[in-house]
């Protein structure tokens, strides 16, 4: 095993199981649909809520996309083989999460303009919404990976994962919607964007490390 053989295999596996990614994207759409129907369909409400709705849906969908990312590796003994080959579990975790993020964010970005129209998202905020998703969702994925690694040995992990990961999501949720809202008010949101990037860097440092600890513990 080498890093490149693992990442190439992960690439194949992601596309072979593309329905998993598709499911999380469909879930995103379903949550989007719930808001106009459940809360209010008036364009004035939707216009002010649209960014928040998109971000809530993206948070939930990202958790669904990562639930089970390590389950197979734990079950089929891959984690043992990574370690046997002297590879760092944390680097493999990082690679797996990034591959999955790539497979998730591309279809999501394609859908955002349509969701924006459906939610009466002001047109001049479309760009900022997309930027906020691009900067914010990698952090969400890295945080969800911690939850996924902790629940890797459980059969039904989605609810528990939501419970432990959701509090960690809040800063990302707050500053990414804050960034878009700042632009809405005509203020520069670059500060919020910088904070988002800083949070990303912190999480980038800690997430693979803690994922490795919990995966090794689960493999015992």
């Amino acid at each position: 095993m080498t890093y490149s053989s693992i990442f190439l295999s992960e690439w194949y596996l992601t596309f072979r199981r593309k329905q998993d990614i598709a499911n999380s994207i469909l879930f995103f759409l379903v949550v989007i649909v719930l808001f106009p129907i459940g809360v209010s369909a008036s364009p004035s409400f939707l216009a002010s809520a649209s960014v928040g709705i998109i971000w809530c849906a993206a948070s939930l969908a990202s958790m669904l996309a990562l639930d089970g990312i390590f389950k197979e590796d734990l079950r089929d003994g891959s984690i043992d083989q990574w370690r046997m080959n002297g590879l760092m579990v944390s680097i493999i975790v990082l690679g797996k999460v990034l591959i999955r993020w790539g497979a998730f964010i591309l279809p999501l970005l394609v859908l955002i303009p349509f969701c924006g129209v459906a939610l009466s998202l002001p047109e001049d905020l479309m760009f900022e919404t997309i930027v906020s998703l691009l900067v914010g969702t990698p952090t969400l994925f890295l945080l969800a990976a911690i939850g996924a690694s902790i629940t890797a040995s459980l059969r039904n992990s989605a609810v528990l994962m939501t419970l432990i990961v959701m509090p960690l999501y809040l800063p990302v949720l707050i500053f990414s919607t804050g960034y878009v809202k700042a632009s809405e008010l005509g203020v520069s949101g670059i500060g919020q964007l910088a904070i988002l990037a800083a949070i990303f860097l912190i999480v980038l440092l800690i997430s693979p490390f803690f994922c490795a600890i919990s995966l090794k513990a689960s493999a015992e």
Binding site: I146, P167, L168, L170, P171, I174, F175, G178, F210
Partner: peptide, 19 residues
């Protein structure tokens, strides 16, 4: 693991909620 991750994130969460 989750307690320690929570502790590291706690200042960020608190600051973001205040903001």
């Amino acid at each position: 693991v989750i307690a320690l991750v929570g502790l590291i994130n706690l200042p960020i969460i608190k600051y973001s909620v205040d903001w």
